[in-house]
């Protein structure tokens, strides 16, 4: 019986899946060997990437956080006012921001800004044979290039999320003050609605999102193909993959937190 050919799309999907597994294996290997290869994990690289991914993203995070807080407060105040419940806008916005929107939007910003940059940087290095140069020098590209980027985003994403939460609460407070509520009343509502566990859960999610977005961006860069479009395609794959993974992970966290009763 003549063999049937696998469709190119199926073959490409299979190659992407196995490539992803190989990358995860390389990450685990690099982590296990880190004590022996600690010279290749340069703290100066972690600091540089943290500055790029964190400090330089701060204005955008603060702007978006404040706008999200404003918009959420306005939109939810309209229906809640009909029932005389507009003071509870503070409860709604604070819980939404701390548990969901803060970490989620920070990760989306990170995907668009940092994940794509990682893919483009590493993709360009691959096209220029710099990754080959590292390998023949006996250096591990995952330890030297991927782990510092993941460590940096793991550290800065919770901070960015905290900043986004704060900016969102300020935006919400501005709207509520405009509606005639006093700041102490708004603050009391926020404290009553949101707990430290909400904040901690959100920040923990953000740390995981940050590391995963960085890993997806780096993986896209290392898997860059040949040709002039390859780096652009890698950056696109990093953004799409980062956002999809973030949302899938958020769903998994929602189920986990539900099970844990948080």
């Amino acid at each position: 019986m003549p063999g049937r050919r696998i469709s190119p799309r199926l073959a490409a999907a299979f190659a992407a899946a196995t490539g992803g597994l190989v990358f995860i294996g390389a990450l685990v290997t690099a982590l296990v060997r880190l004590p022996a290869n600690r010279r290749q994990f340069r703290l100066s690289d972690v600091a540089r990437e943290a500055e790029q991914a964190g400090f330089r993203a701060l204005p955008l995070v603060l702007l978006l956080g404040a706008l999200i807080g404003l918009i959420l407060a306005f939109q939810s105040a309209i229906p809640m006012r009909r029932f005389g419940a507009d003071i509870f806008v503070a409860n709604l916005v604070s819980v939404s921001l701390l548990r969901e929107l803060g970490p989620l939007l920070s990760a989306v910003i990170l995907s668009g800004r940092t994940g794509s940059a990682f893919a483009a940087e590493l993709g360009t290095m691959k096209v220029n044979q710099e990754l080959d140069a590292l390998e023949v020098m006996g250096l591990d590209p995952v330890t030297l290039l991927v782990l510092p980027r993941m460590a940096a985003t793991l550290l800065v994403t919770p901070v960015l999320t905290l900043m986004m939460d704060a900016a969102g609460l300020i935006g919400m407070t501005l709207v509520m003050v405009g509606f005639g509520y006093s700041e102490p009343a708004i603050q009391a509502q926020v404290q009553q609605a949101a707990s430290a566990a909400d904040l901690a859960g959100g920040l923990a999610k953000a740390a995981v999102f940050g590391a995963v977005v960085a890993a997806i961006g780096c993986r896209a860069g290392l898997a860059t193909g040949n040709g002039p479009r390859a780096v652009g395609l890698a950056a696109t794959a990093a953004v799409v993959g980062g956002i999809v993974a973030t949302i899938l992970l958020d769903g998994a966290f929602a189920m986990l937190f539900y099970r844990l009763g948080w």
Partner: peptide
């Protein structure tokens, strides 16, 4: 190894490129 493109690390100056193997 010298690759066809040179494959120098773009984020390091020439001294940094030559120092990298010595550092490692």
């Amino acid at each position: 190894v010298m690759f066809q493109s040179g494959a120098l690390f773009g984020s390091l100056d020439l001294l940094g490129n030559v120092m990298l193997p010595l550092e490692m």
